[in-house]
Design a protein around this nucleic acid. Structure first.
Length: 220
DNA sequence: GCGACAG
DNA sequence: ATCTTGTCGC
């Protein structure tokens, strides 16, 4: 697929923070997604083993999640894990996988945070700028912010706030399971993100495209 | 100084 | 993320 401007990846953690502050203003998080018009959704995930990062992007139909395409890439893990700087660890290998993608999905779902980030630019926002296609974030854990306890039924949701600002939501995609932390990426707003993630996780805690990407990344 | 901290 | 079998609970 066609891609936007080149990102700077070969930098130190300190420079990475400066890069995030430089890019944060470009992110758009107030645009509604037309769920009725979505036909293809992609799940994005990266697995790391023995300092080798493997990325997988799986495109599936929506809303029945039939696999359409899987793009993978592999390379030495280039950056340490630093909370808040995940894009610089997973971005490089993801770029490679994205460049091999033939289909252009209507939206990408990332395994990690988006706007729910100390500087409001998690991996879903950052890669969204590069992709130029709507992205949303679905994290299994909370990076920052706080929220009230989430109701026990599927669909229950509580807004996550940080420094007086709404940055995401804790969403119960399945009863009896811990909620997932969703937030806008780029070119999508929080309300649309919540609706999309719920529609993508009809049976299990994690969205189907993410489950597919997770399998693809850890088994090739 | 102390606690929190996506994957 | 990853190391890892069986096991408790809805």
């Amino acid at each position: 697929m066609k891609l936007n401007a080149v990102n700077r990846w070969d930098i130190s953690p300190k420079e990475a923070v400066a890069e995030q502050n430089r890019l944060r203003g470009e992110v758009i998080t107030d645009r509604p997604l037309d769920l009725a018009g979505i036909g293809l959704v992609a799940g994005v995930d990266v697995s790391v083993k023995n300092d080798v990062s493997r990325a997988a992007v799986v495109v599936t139909t929506f809303p029945d999640f039939e696999p359409v395409e899987t793009a993978v890439a592999q390379m030495p893990t280039p950056f340490p894990y630093v909370p808040g700087l995940l894009s610089f660890r997973e971005g490089p290998v993801l770029e490679e996988a994205f460049s091999r993608l033939r289909h252009v999905p209507d939206v990408f779902i990332f395994d990690g945070s988006g706007y729910l980030h100390p500087r409001r630019i998690g991996i879903a926002c950052h890669m969204g700028l590069w992709l130029g296609v709507p992205t949303v974030a679905n994290a299994k854990n909370r990076l920052c912010g706080s929220h009230e306890e989430v109701g026990p039924e599927r669909g229950a949701c509580q807004l996550v706030t940080d420094r007086g600002e709404i940055i995401g939501a804790a969403l119960r995609t399945r009863a009896g399971c811990k909620p997932v932390y969703v937030s806008a990426g780029h070119l999508a707003d929080l309300d649309s993100t919540i609706s999309l993630i719920l529609a993508c996780a009809p049976k299990f805690r994690l969205p189907e495209p993410i489950r597919s990407a997770h399998n693809a990344a850890g088994a090739f």
